[in-house]
Write a protein that binds this DNA or RNA. Structure first.
Lengths: 192, 192
DNA sequence: ACCTGAACACCGTTCAAGT
DNA sequence: ACCTGAACACCGTTCAAGT
């Protein structure tokens, strides 16, 4: 990449972070370009779609999330690991408004620039679930798709202004639906 | 209302139902007007906002939903009533793509044409919850806001193409998070 | 190589002019 | 009363012309 292009690239990301913080995932691409003092066409040259931009915006967080799954898998009890990771996912979901809805949509469509990231999150969570199921601390009548649906649904919910105040409690409720032992102390550590 | 206006009004609703069935709640208002052979301004005269149109589109379903809450409250066991109504809500959520997201947004904003309808659904569900809690069959550490958040989150989830295939099972999982007795036969009747 | 203004086909809002 | 074309300020896409 040429020096000026590289400079534009990182400048776009900086500005996009600001704009998206204010307006959420539906922020106007034109507005981002405007605030970066660039033509809209230039922005779209670097990030041909909104999802390409978000993949770049979120890749650090997303990598941290999948890496955290690896760490938890070796260093924590299965149910504890699942719940800690679930918490981390919800924190991620709250990074910018609308990200979860965007990821849920991207999850369906292999052409999306976010598809690979979604799949990575999905498989990380599925791995943690299977491990807890092996130990008998997570419901056996549930698969990776179910887990992903539940945590994504909660991620969407805590994104809604009217539901956000109850985010912690809602987390606890969903957690209790996933774990076998409702009052497990491990779960409590993660859900309280 | 003048005769021609009344005719336009109902014609718009008929056409809107078709277009929204195809394109979901984000369907273009212009497209609806076009298909109705009317100027966009005429459509917006009858329904000044998208939410006003949807309030009209959904009012029959919404009324049925709140009325169903009344019926269930007198004719069924509290936990059974709660679960039957929950099922009806999910069926409503599946009537058109995007309605749940729209209602969640409307729920926050008192100026929305859908606000009253959201409040009605909210209070109907809260009533059924309190009754089940009184009997001890629904979790005590949960309020009407929590329930509304959970059922709305599930409504959103089953709206996503990738989660829809597991809709029934996801319902069961959320139901088990709401009810006290996980394998209650009443719950089973509603969740299976 | 990389940037960008401009034309394009959309969207919902508003209102003056028509019947 | 009710309808509507047109102007408006937006949006993302595309590409020919510039450096």
């Amino acid at each position: 990449m040429r020096a000026d292009a590289r400079k534009n690239y990182s400048h776009i990301l900086t500005v996009a972070r600001e704009v998206v913080t204010e307006h959420g995932a539906d922020a106007s691409m034109r507005d981002i370009a405007r605030r970066a003092d660039l033509g809209l066409a230039t922005l779209l040259r670097h990030f041909p779609t909104r999802e390409a931009l978000f993949d770049a915006l979120l890749c650090t967080n997303l990598d941290a999330l999948t890496q955290k799954a690896d760490e938890l898998e070796t260093s924590n009890a299965p149910d504890e690991a699942l719940m800690f990771w679930f918490r981390a996912w919800i924190a991620f979901a709250q990074s910018y408004r609308g990200v979860v809805a965007m990821m849920a949509a991207a999850h369906t469509n292999p052409d999306s620039a976010l598809y690979a990231s979604c799949a990575a999150v999905h498989s990380a969570s599925a791995r943690l679930l299977r491990r807890a199921q092996g130990e008998g601390t997570a419901r056996a009548d549930m698969n990776g798709d179910d887990l992903f649906a539940l945590i994504t649904a909660l991620g969407w919910a805590v994104d809604q202004p009217s539901f956000a105040p109850r985010a912690d409690h809602l987390f606890h409720l969903i957690a209790s639906a996933i774990l076998t032992n409702r009052s497990s102390s491990d779960a409590k550590k993660a859900t309280c």
